[in-house]
Design a protein around this nucleic acid. Sequence first.
DNA 1: ATGAAAGCGCTAACAT
DNA 2: ATGTTAGCGCTTTCAT
Lengths: 377, 377
Amino acid sequence: MNADDTFASGRTGHRHASMLERRATIEDVASAAKVSVATVSRALRGLPNVAVSTRQRVMSVATSLNYEPDPAASRLAAGKTKTVTVGVPLISGWYFSTVVASAEAVCNGAGYDFQVICVSGPADRDRLLDDRHHLERRTDGLILVDVEPSAEQAARLRSRRIALTTIGNAVDGHPSVMIDDELVGEMACEHLVELGHRRIAMIGGLHDDPMNFTVPKRRRQGFERTLVRHGLALLPEFVAVGNFGIQGGREAMAELLDLADPPTAVFAMSDDMAFGALMELDRHGLVAGRDISIVGVDDHEFAQVVNLTTIRQPVADHGAVAAQLLISEMEAAAVGATGRPLTGTPTRSQTGESAGTPAVRGQLALVVRSTTGPAPV
Amino acid sequence: MNADDTFASGRTGHRHASMLERRATIEDVASAAKVSVATVSRALRGLPNVAVSTRQRVMSVATSLNYEPDPAASRLAAGKTKTVTVGVPLISGWYFSTVVASAEAVCNGAGYDFQVICVSGPADRDRLLDDRHHLERRTDGLILVDVEPSAEQAARLRSRRIALTTIGNAVDGHPSVMIDDELVGEMACEHLVELGHRRIAMIGGLHDDPMNFTVPKRRRQGFERTLVRHGLALLPEFVAVGNFGIQGGREAMAELLDLADPPTAVFAMSDDMAFGALMELDRHGLVAGRDISIVGVDDHEFAQVVNLTTIRQPVADHGAVAAQLLISEMEAAAVGATGRPLTGTPTRSQTGESAGTPAVRGQLALVVRSTTGPAPV
DNA sequence: ATGAAAGCGCTAACAT
DNA sequence: ATGTTAGCGCTTTCAT
């Protein structure tokens, strides 16, 4: 089959260098350990009903043979892939890459292969979730970050035995990790009001929202509600769209500054947008924290560089916790599969969290730096 | 030979088919299309020796059955995984996440599964490259970003039939994409010298360099050489270590400012370090571009926010080009494997690029913003 | 151009 | 506690 020797002469001194490495199979281990392949399989996977001495012998033989099970073979035979996939709207960008990084660390630590796929719009989302191609037989679990599957898609995922955990929004019956986004808006508003501001604007939201990104909606609710509680109102012209990017933030700030009567303070729903706002302030010769106050959300790595006041959220934790939740789900499912056929699985449709579907909430903290200050008199 | 019928009755009964989706196998397609599985396999994979009419029929049946080949099964049978893995020192962080993002787009577009693994030190690197676990039978190709495999590791990769492409450094006999790092140092130096600076410092390098990260070394060479060409010298106290992070840049700048006779200009080998330097300047009440000039490298998204003068490199291209090179290698290897056994593959040990191992160089551009200005008089 | 059949390297019944 | 063996769903000779 392989014509290794064809080159054995001319290629290099060492034949080994050009030869294909021979990998040990479970049979090699079995015969070397003088047991059956079944025993090797059990021994190596820590299954019960293996004599201690046998297990040890098998393990040492496996090690000395440098044996590693072929993932394709075990996937085919067992039907599990030991792979997790994370779907994000964008791979670069501080928030998402931080989430991906921490999820990767956890998954890899738990022995899972880690795949990433970019889901930048509804089409991508539906392709990922509806087509047979991406998930089917390729992954045991999926982490969706700021991507909301429909109820049907979530249901199908379950019937396809693919575990799901979401970040940024909750899907009924699945674990999720998110922050209290209403509280975010509330905290930002409180801070600004306390400083004496009364003309407070908001940068956030998306121009069109095909992905049904609920985060800005919730932040706005908390923000507006708090404004109202203080006897203030959210003026229509004080609602600018920033699309969660630096440029969007800059443009939004430009619009606000163009107003006949501009705000004295701005709540930017993300640090990125706040950075853009800061740029625009600079262009106008205005000083943040003196002429106009800006609060962001995230505590982006750069927030300290530009001294941005912001609401910190534990982004790295998001990925790590989601990965852990997902892994728990998958291992539970694995047990359930062998034990009893998950007859008892709850098929809840409650609005809140139901038993078995933890909705982890991250801690928030207002970090006051220099971009917010007392309202100008 | 097969006693299929032994279990024909009891086995196939769908036990909990109520919940689980039934997926079509190649046999389902074969029988529905009234051909053999072999023909289905050929037809669907675009292999020759299939009648046009047959192929069409098979394809439409496959579509209507929503058939998708089981990746585990084809991997096991064919020995290829259709997966690429990228190893990066850090997943978050602007540079790496941008590279990963563009690589993902290309790989996914080409139908490859895309895995990421964090390689944050020599131990991680050796585990990834030496152990059987990670790569073996899991991936067809590897992209290493700022991670340098030893010659032996690269050789083993070849004998394990895993394609390799590197970013940031070149490995003999493998495609790579990098920039001319000496030119980077040169351009930065030229710019500063032209502005009249003569006391020019440098922030870069790593404290200890277990990964043999060659980028800062080359940048320094170009930088120092250019200094010398202009009759200047790189003073030992003008070489600060920044570890390529914001904090490191800040500390490095602090050291430089503590000097009895501080520099009037600083070449920071990355934008991140430049941002840190900017922070420190700010803390000292100094204005960048007036009191002290700073040039960075990258043209980080954030560079425009703080108006940083920098040397732009096409980071996204790095990932995209590397992915393309890798895919070319893999498809060539696939052909070579069936066709002729890659007789002509060069085993060169030249210093530069050799035929068949393209070393793509990215375009550089000096982007002048406001953090550099004429030397104070 | 098509089909039959032998694996690929495991896992999981089932038997002992 | 251990062994036997039938698949898992494909790909790939080898026939025809």
